[in-house]
Structure formats: C-alpha cells, structure tokens
C-alpha cells in the first residue's frame, strides 16, 4: 500500500512538473530559447495567490484567476522588454538575458515580500479519498492536481489542433520565415505563446505550493529546473512529451526518495535523464532531426 501511495504522490508531483514543462516546451518550440525565468514566474504566481487569499481573504478561485492574469501579463512584458530586442541575436545572449530576468524577479520578490518563508495555505478544499478500509489515502490535492493537468493537456492539444492561433504557433515553430510569408503575425504568436506558458506557470505554482507549502523568493527555481529536465526528457517541443516526461520524472523522484535514498533522489532523477538521452538523444517523444550536408 505504501508503494501505491508513493506512486500517487509521484504522479501528483509529476503532473505539476508537466504543467511547468509545457511552458518551457512551447517557448522553446517557438522562440528556440531556454526561458530560465520561467521558474520565477511560478514563484510570482504563488505570491499573488498568497497575498490575495491569505492576506486579503479573497475566495481561492478568484485569487487563482488573479494570479493567472498577473503571470500572463508578466510573461508578455518580459518577452517585450527583454527577449524581443534579441530575436536575431545568438541563443547564448538570450539565455544570459533570461538569467538576468530570473535574478531580477527573485530580487524584486525579496524586496517586496521579504526573505522569510511564508507558509502557503492550500487552495484545494477537496477531502481525501480513503480506499481499502483506510489503508490507502489519496490526498485531495493529488486528485485536483492530476485532474487539472489532464484538463490542461486536452485543452491545449485541442487549441493547437483546432484553432487558427494554434495552427499559427505550429507553423512558426516549424519555419519562422515561411510562416511570415504566409501572413502570420510572428510577434503576436510569440507573445501569445509566452502568455499561455506563463498563465499555466501560475496554475502549476499554486498546485506545487498546495502540496509543498513553504514559499520563499527562491521557491520557483528548483521545480523550474526539474520541469525543464522533464521537457527535455520527453522530447522538447512536444506537448505529449512534456506530460510523459513530467510524470515519469515525478514518479522516479518520489520512488527514488522512498526506496533508494532520500538524499540521492535528485541524483537519481538526473542519472535517469542522462541514460534516456544517451539512448534517445532527442528525448522519448522527440523528433529525430536528420543532418543536411
């Protein structure tokens, strides 16, 4: 039974990673950049919920909606100010700028909210389900997290497949210049991608903090790195890959912590990543890129 409950915790954590990984994967697919500041957008989303819900007493759903709006706006502003001027510069320059943005967000949060750890109140009010006569308990947060993750995945897949804006995103990620020739608004599409990715980050952040309720200005960076690893794991640029990578990573992390060594769980996660990449160099569901001579 303890194995099952660990597995459930792993899937729940993995779902959070999957939602964050979506933001990385979409931005990478379109702008070909690693958005290192993504993890810190998560943290800002958590603070938005904390300040409105715990301090002002807003209803949970309203404050989550507020956080999504804040993060969406933040994502678009960051893209406009910091990344857009570097659109044709080397990828490394954009990477360092993203790191600068990440420092900026962390230190702004440090100044505004202080360095002390805030204890986050869970936004989920779903009671836990007890199975097998109380031997197996599924926490309410886990149920909500997995459900939200699945809803987001389905909605996003439908959005990309069925709407014009989604098709435009696919086209831009395939070939920017050709898409522009077809009359697609490149800047608008990239902005939209950042908006969606950052909005999802807010939701992921709230779910993460509902499970691990300590909030500091550095809360976002480790889940951010893990989620990026998950995105690479599943094949960067692929939406189902992000789901698969996220869930596998979460399960490996929790099972590794429970059965092998609690201190080595991060090392185990990264070791599995390395093995997967050595066997499949573009991730589990990544496209194989053939080289032109």
């Amino acid at each position: 039974m303890s194995f099952l409950s660990n597995l459930i915790n792993g899937i729940s954590l993995g779902s959070v990673y999957a939602i964050i990984a979506l933001g990385y994967t979409m931005v990478y697919g379109i702008a070909k950049m690693l958005n290192f500041a993504h993890g810190d957008v998560i943290m800002i989303g958590c603070y938005a919920v904390f300040m409105t819900m715990s301090r002002q007493g807003w209803p949970p759903l309203l404050s989550v909606a507020f956080a999504v709006v804040v993060c969406t706006a933040l994502g678009m502003i960051i893209e406009k100010i910091a990344y857009k001027p570097l659109r044709r510069a080397t990828p490394l320059a954009v990477l360092i700028t993203a790191i600068g943005v990440s420092y900026f967000l962390q230190n702004s949060a440090l100044l505004i909210f202080g360095a002390d750890t805030k204890s986050f109140t869970s936004v989920v009010a779903v009671p836990p389900i007890k199975l097998a006569g109380g031997a197996l308990t599924i926490p309410g947060t886990a149920i909500v997290t997995v459900a939200v993750c699945l809803v987001i995945m389905v909605a996003l897949t439908l959005f990309i497949k069925k709407t014009k804006a989604g098709q435009a995103m696919l086209a831009v990620s395939e070939d920017k210049d050709a898409a522009q020739l077809m009359g697609i608004n490149i800047n608008g599409t990239i902005s939209l991608t950042f908006a969606i990715g950052s909005g999802l980050a807010a939701i992921a952040g709230v779910l993460f903090c509902s499970t691990y309720p300590s909030l500091t200005p550095y809360t976002g960076s480790m889940p951010g790195i893990k989620a990026f690893t998950a995105a690479v794991f599943g094949g960067i640029g692929s939406v189902p890959g992000a789901l698969l990578g996220g869930i596998l990573l979460g399960v490996i992390e929790i099972l590794g912590r429970a059965y092998i060594s609690s201190q080595l769980s991060d090392a185990i996660v990264f070791a599995v990543l390395i093995i997967v990449l050595l066997v499949k160099p573009t991730g589990i569901l990544g496209k194989k890129v053939s080289e032109k001579v």
Partner: peptide
Amino acid sequence: SDYRMLIYSIVLIAMMLFNWSPRM
C-alpha cells in the same frame, strides 16, 4: 544594501541588450 542585487540584475539585462541586440 537591499537594492544591490536588483541593480545587478538590471545592469546585466541592460548590458546584454546593449551588446547583442541587432538594433543596438
């Protein structure tokens, strides 16, 4: 004091934009 890391990050972003942006 408290503002130094914030200024550091702004300087970093500004230097990158100045150095690498095609328009600059």
